[in-house]
Write a protein that binds this DNA or RNA. Structure first.
Lengths: 327, 327
DNA sequence: GTTAGTTATGTAAAGGATTACATTTTCGTA
DNA sequence: TACGAAAATGTAATCCTTTACATAACTAAC
């Protein structure tokens, strides 16, 4: 593989001139430019990013931290990040932490060792202390999930309001016995969504029933099944379920289908996230849509700005309640 | 940020010695080793991969090319690749081509420009000519989808046999009118799966009915709905459907559910890939399981071997027919 | 035809690590 | 104590670009 020196030699110019042509600085005479371009073509020269990156002290790689790639919620966000990153000549390294600190550390090391220029964290289980520490010397943005500690910029939606509206929708349909499938309250978004749930109930004078509030460690299909089993075995069954994730809701739907409970007639169901599959189930799922693609592009833009030393502000994006067959 | 020179100065040794400590070469006296480690800690030194990579002419990044990250089929494969890569100190760059040549080219450029050491391609729509050309100078492995052109090593399953067994299973259940939802025959795997379908029918003396063979450009949910509408509007409806992807099958299931057709009683259904959701539908989906995780680790191992200049052989892995509620 | 002022090109340092080769230190043995 | 071999450490080149600064070439005006 040819390097810039050989190109310079063949073109009969200096490496500086070759570099100038490469980087499109138009201080180069058309005549010399052509000589250089001919040499490049002749030698099939491809500039090495290794040398370039070292010289520029950058890697042009963005780290994207997700707890798991199996959760479709992240797809659109990732697509948004990726498109925006490519548009700015960055590449993304998708990192699945599995909420495993060891793995997380492997990825954090990449930014410490300059293999990545910044991080977009979407992992609610991220080690916030490490993140805080890292954010002192590196560009970091939180996307969707966030913590207020450490003053790390974030982009997200108003979780409380989203939950509030979902539950209000159920109440308007006549439901009073509304279960909440939530994730662990150590996560900020879980607390916020609960607050919205409680706020809606209280506003309509409905007593909050602790039996109806279930917590699961993960937001998966299986957890949805289990939570549904539990709540449907109560003497006083709920007539509606609000799940803080579509996967949970799809698990619930499966269990309700299996036990012959009619959705939405006997039990109404709302999910959260509007993943693709929420529209493929039978019946289709009412859910809260976050502007995921946009969230991705915004996060990416914020990160790139931060890398360039600019100040960035937190952003709240709009959500939307999609009413479908399950309510 | 400190560099190796400063560490050397603080430790009172040469950069070579620091480098030796860093790389765990145990030619260094315990006494000096401690001095160096102290200096590293004191300066919070982190070796830069930029310098290291340039010097070693490697990036320790593997490119993974997928048509889309939304298809759950790729999850487990990616997880397998990633774990194996991490175990060998590589990182993966997940590249979604959207079957868009321009995007593809951005990613190919990364390996041309030394930002990546090799490629695992899982995109059936990949530009095989470019891939051939690239494979002359770069390590490339095909995973799951492959082409025989260009002699690029691959890991896959026996698609013909898998389809053959699926259709045979339907025949054994008494079905004779079996539809095939296939993807475009420009793809090798589509041709192979059709061959398996035909082989099974012929073996049992069943006439192949062209009306039952549908082709779709993409393997998504929507295409499954459309194909089902088409095939169920025939005078002589099929009693079973074999889809070459779970997503297609889930689309079919949705359409059958919607129109009140009982699965499996009126129409039996088989998918392909055993994605997570195939077990979440109602009824659950009979499907063909590929050893996806293993396919990932094998592909990754093959690629790393190739990068290290070793010869690698094509591999065929075992598949399995998972009989569930839809048949 | 000079000279000053532009514009184009060249030289060499810098970025941060690894490592072949050279040099110094250590240690056992005579 | 001195010598040689073995072990530890150091020096400097190398990987490939970019770019500040130096120099050369050119243009225009007198």
């Amino acid at each position: 593989m040819a390097n810039i020196n050989e190109v310079a030699k063949v073109a009969g110019v200096s490496v500086a001139t070759v570099s100038r042509v490469l980087n499109g600085q138009n201080v180069v005479t058309p005549k010399t430019k052509i000589k250089v371009e001919d040499a490049i073509r002749k030698l099939k020269y491809e500039p090495s990013m290794l040398g370039r990156n070292l010289r520029n002290s950058e890697s042009r790689v963005l780290l994207v931290l997700v707890p798991t790639i199996s959760n479709p919620f992240y797809f659109e966000i990732i697509k948004g990040i990726e498109q925006n990153a490519l548009d700015h000549n960055y590449n993304i390294l998708l990192c699945e932490t599995d909420s495993n600190p060891e793995r997380e550390n492997i990825y954090f090391d990449l930014v410490r060792k300059k293999m990545a220029d910044g991080i977009i964290s979407m992992d609610p289980a991220v080690n916030i202390d490490t993140l805080k520490e890292l954010s002192k010397n590196h560009a970091i943005i939180q996307c969707s999930e966030y913590s207020l500690e450490g003053n790390i910029p974030y982009v997200t939606i108003d979780n409380e309001d989203a939950a509030y509206r979902a539950v209000k929708h159920l109440i308007k349909l006549g439901h009073e016995k509304i279960a909440l499938f939530n994730s662990n309250e150590k996560y900020l978004y879980a607390r916020q969504r609960k607050d919205g749930y409680v706020k809606a109930l209280e506003e309509f004078g409905i007593q909050v029933n602790p039996d109806y509030m279930l917590y699961t460690d993960q937001l998966g299909f299986e957890q949805g099944i289990q939570a549904t089993k539990k709540v449907m075995s109560l003497k006083d069954r709920p007539t509606a379920i609000f799940s803080v994730s579509d996967l949970l809701a799809i698990g619930a739907l499966k269990e309700l289908n299996n036990t012959g409970v009619e959705v939405p007639d006997e039990v109404a169901l709302i999910g959260f996230d509007n993943i693709d599959f929420s529209n493929m189930t039978h019946p289709t799922l009412t859910t809260i849509a976050q502007p995921m693609y946009q969230m991705g592009t915004v996060a990416s833009t914020m990160l790139i700005n931060k890398i360039n030393g600019e100040d960035v502000e937190n952003k709240f994006l709009n959500h939307e309640l999609l009413i479908r067959e399950s309510t």
